[in-house]
Design a protein around this nucleic acid. Sequence first.
DNA 1: GTGTGGCATTGACGCAGATCAAAGGGGTGC
DNA 2: GCACCCCTTTGATCTGCGTCAATGCCACAC
Lengths: 252, 252
Amino acid sequence: MHANVKQNVVPLITPGLKVACSQCNLRELCLPFGLDDRDMARLDSLIGGGRKLKRGQHLYRAGDAFESIFAVRSGFFKTDVLTEDGRDQVTGFQMAGEILGMDGISTEHHTCNAVALEDSEVCLIPFTELELLSSEIHSLQHHLHKVMSREIVRDHGVMMLLGTMRAEERLAAFLLNLSQRFSARGYSPSEFHLRMTREEIGSYLGLKLETVSRAFSRFQDEGLISVQQKHVRIVDLARLKSLLAPPDGRIA
Amino acid sequence: MHANVKQNVVPLITPGLKVACSQCNLRELCLPFGLDDRDMARLDSLIGGGRKLKRGQHLYRAGDAFESIFAVRSGFFKTDVLTEDGRDQVTGFQMAGEILGMDGISTEHHTCNAVALEDSEVCLIPFTELELLSSEIHSLQHHLHKVMSREIVRDHGVMMLLGTMRAEERLAAFLLNLSQRFSARGYSPSEFHLRMTREEIGSYLGLKLETVSRAFSRFQDEGLISVQQKHVRIVDLARLKSLLAPPDGRIA
DNA sequence: GTGTGGCATTGACGCAGATCAAAGGGGTGC
DNA sequence: GCACCCCTTTGATCTGCGTCAATGCCACAC
């Protein structure tokens, strides 16, 4: 295998990488959810192939023309927006089975950046062709709408977090969310590696990296988690969850 | 006209209220955007009629079964999420031509509350029928996707605001956003009535109502705006915009 | 294996915004 | 038209997180 692909060069589509949706163990988490065999085969036929990314590579950048959405096959991504005045906000972290790029539909250009946080693979789903197929397969159309709606609901959850929670509550919510998503993918819900830096966590949670680090340390001191650099083990799940209760424990 | 509709009773659909999309002066801002006459007539035929709401009434509540999305014909709404632990976050304010309810698609149940902040009217758009029609009219399908994508992009903007801005920057961004949206609807960009309370603004911006009030007062003291209760006039638009520049004026 | 630079941790201090409190005004409902 | 209550404003004080700073560690490249 040639090793002449530089890390800062965007790799071309790799047709050999293609794995049929029907053979994919992520299909229940991903776009094909709910399709029967025949329709899944039709979806297979439009998936444009895969693309591999090294850690640090951009899947797309704000301003890029929108052509496809992407399904994460393996690896880990972050998305972030940056404004002309230099602000930078991480808007999400995406793992296997999750869909990236729907921000680009509205303006025909991507409005955020998507970066691989570890070596990753995605499936390309050409959007025009997806719309065409989804007008023929009702369950595909409806599931696409659900995926977009789920993204909206997720964003509302982040707004809630950013608008109403204190630092330790935010970090607890973040860890519980990761735990639940790893669990849904067959990984341990209680022990995992963070793929992102303290600064990226901080950006996502609206905190400074020092505050994130201190919150990690505090959680460890209190026996809620065990943390060493990027390795996290949740020791007391119940107590971690209880941090999300309101300060005064009121019921309504 | 009978006056026996209590404010806390959800009004039934009012077929007489129906106004055809083709006759609606909001069509360029709303779902019919980009449709030709024939397709607009087909969209007309599925719009389920209108619904009037008094100030304070809920259009839908979290947990309600999802059946329709709604287009605001007139008036003003807020949407908010509340968690079981009592947190409350306003996720948006919606005005004429904007679409409400897309949060409900993913789970078949609404995940937030939508409340009229003044007497308002909406068009009901039954979602199953909309999907059916959009599978026949490609431009309608694509525009629906754009509307959903735009909501995602808008949410990213709010995350940016909540995650990176200080109080006065948030309020400036909020006022500029309202100004721009009023302007797009033919109203004055520089003078308008706020339909929401300081507390609702604060919830949306992740601030306490006192902080919002103080920021308003400060803006007035500095000659940026003139504000009296809910009436706002933007006096120095350029300087208001300049508040969104980064603290140190750095370029990259 | 070793060197290096990005990443993480921890401490001291300051400040923006939260909290607590009180008073006044205007819109709303009767 | 009137009264009441919610909304808003403003002040004083407190505090959680940001900022600044220094040290240490680990992962990665060579």
